[in-house]
Design a binder for these strands. Structure first.
Lengths: 156, 156
DNA sequence: GCTATGTAGATGCGTGTGCAACGTTCTAAG
DNA sequence: CTTAGAACGTTGCACACGCATCTACATAGC
């Protein structure tokens, strides 16, 4: 590290830091593998899958742009473009919001639901083989507990 | 989910899937917080920090472009541009490789080392407060063990 | 020595992202 | 009713990334 000064107490045990770095690496690598799976098998980016999935899980297969952006961890502008693409491909439609003229719903089309249903097995198989299958039940429980400590508010 | 067919056994317990999704969210959100910290305090992107850090940890403060790209999870082309920027800012230099005329070393400059030393406390404080401090020793050990199961080869 | 195959790094191109700014609509204060 | 401020979604812009391609060099086979 070659830290010069001011690190009297910040000289964290490298092992602890290493945990974070390994987590980073693991998450990035698995995510890329999942995305590659989806791309070759279904020509679907992971972000697109997430959007379709979120919509499918929502009542009326629809979500306000803003809510959707939060759930898929995208900026509003990023989601605008992504929905543009999905709409161009017929997987999603925009629909006006009756109660708020500023708002728009992103709505999953039948084609979008079909596409999601096609891709879901690939996605699930990927997560299973690359993540879930590696651990036993206790470990997954431990993991879930730790994640809940990290983000208590994300318990939805 | 509205899965249609072919999912006889793929109907994973939603809880298991949720573990992966929470991990994804946690990792992305923490990473963005760390990056924001570095940007406002030191005008340094996280990828740049990682590069400087990797170089600082390497013998002779230097690494071949290829090796470096692997360690920071970047494509070769991505690293080429990033090193371009860091070189423009005087934090890194390119140096020919004696034993292989194709090869280049990315070498950390003194200015780069200084910049890293400035930013390190911010980075460490961020990881500590947003990740390490949330857990006790046992949990971190558990976490490390699980990560080693995920990527046995990444035990460096 | 000469050719074929492979590797290191750089570059053209297309794509996807976030930030800042904008128009529109909602809400609150007077 | 009018007006100030906030919220929703889109757009202009710049930037960072990966893929495919390219050049230069290395290595193996003959």
């Amino acid at each position: 590290m070659t830290l010069t000064a001011g690190e009297s107490r910040d000289a964290i045990g490298s092992e602890e830091l290493e945990v974070w770095r390994m987590l980073q690496r693991a998450q990035v690598r698995i995510t890329r593998l999942l995305e590659a799976d989806l791309m070759v098998a279904h020509d679907l980016a992971l972000a697109s899958y997430d959007v379709l999935n979120q919509l499918a899980e929502s009542p009326g297969r629809r979500l306000r742009m803003n809510d959707l952006a939060e759930r898929v961890l995208l900026s509003r502008s990023g989601l605008t473009r992504l929905i543009d693409r999905l709409q161009r491909d017929g997987l999603v439609e925009r629909e006006a919001c009756a109660s708020d003229a500023r708002g728009l719903f992103a709505v999953l089309t039948d084609a979008g639901a079909d596409r999601l249903a096609e891709a879901a097995p690939t996605y699930l198989r990927g997560i299973r083989s690359r993540f879930l299958d590696v651990f036993d039940e206790d470990e997954l429980r431990q993991c879930a507990a730790m994640l809940n400590k990290l983000f208590p508010e994300a318990a939805g």
